[in-house]
Design a protein around this nucleic acid. Structure first.
Lengths: 132, 132
DNA sequence: GGAAGTACCCACTTTGAAGTAAGGTACCCA
DNA sequence: TGGGTACCTTACTTCAAAGTGGGTACTTCC
């Protein structure tokens, strides 16, 4: 039984109460699930090594500030590796670390699932006859 | 190759740009990754059918307002089923729908991963000698 | 009659994430 | 001399999510 297996893995980590706000896993999840992180991570999962300007193009709509902030967080967390070449004009490469790859391997099925079900779930918001 | 397979599944859905803000998958992801949704979903994955008061206890720190709001969203999205028994005092049961179970099957490995790596990742924030 | 229990809703305030706009560096080329 | 390129940073503003503190309904028990 796959489900029971999943649940037991959960149980080991979150005994009775699940996990309180502010605990490390929440913080990490917040990093990973911030507005632009998934886009950056998936872009790197798809595209391999990418430079700053290429990431800006792929994460459509991201501002320079948010891209910098997102990348900084991911680099600090050890999920993305940053390699700056000392040339002019600047050339900086970003790529997933092995840890980052572990993450995207778990993250992308979730994104694919969300993509596949989003229309049905959000489109068919059943008429709000919810009240008892 | 597992990774290539994942990536090709991604590619099919997010051709060159990944996906713009405001698209349905973002909205769904935001629902699922809001502050309390993962706790509620995992609590239901672990605990099966739970009633309101039990959920309040498990999602340590949640306010009544936020629990109500979170549950309402999840119910509207068809991830959680709500069953109100017409007794006094009120008795309302919540449980995952099959769709919700699909989600938690993808979500819980991510949470487990986050739990296992959070300490190392956040604790070892390497001394900020990041600048070139 | 009034307190207690359960599952909520509503109005207001606070917080923090994201957006905007502007500047900054370091070098090359015209 | 003064653009132009690529990679950022900082200061200020905005806005939605979350928090706070109340209220409600219905019935049973004391």
């Amino acid at each position: 039984m796959k489900v029971s297996h999943e649940v037991s893995a959960l149980r080991q980590r979150f005994p009775d109460l699940v996990f309180e706000a502010g605990c490390p896993s929440r913080v990490l999840l917040d990093h990973v699930m911030s507005k632009w992180s998934p886009l950056v991570l998936l872009a790197l999962a798809e595209g391999g090594t990418l430079r700053w300007s290429e990431l800006r193009r792929r994460a459509e709509g991201v501002s320079e500030k948010m891209l910098a902030q997102t990348l900084r967080t991911l680099v600090d967390d050890g999920l993305v590796a940053r390699e700056a070449h000392p040339v002019v004009p600047p050339h900086v490469d970003y790529a997933l670390t092995p840890l980052g790859r572990e993450l995207t391997d778990l993250l992308s099925p979730l994104m694919v699932w969300a993509f596949d079900h989003a229309g049905a779930i959000l489109g068919v918001e059943p008429p709000p006859a919810r009240r008892d």
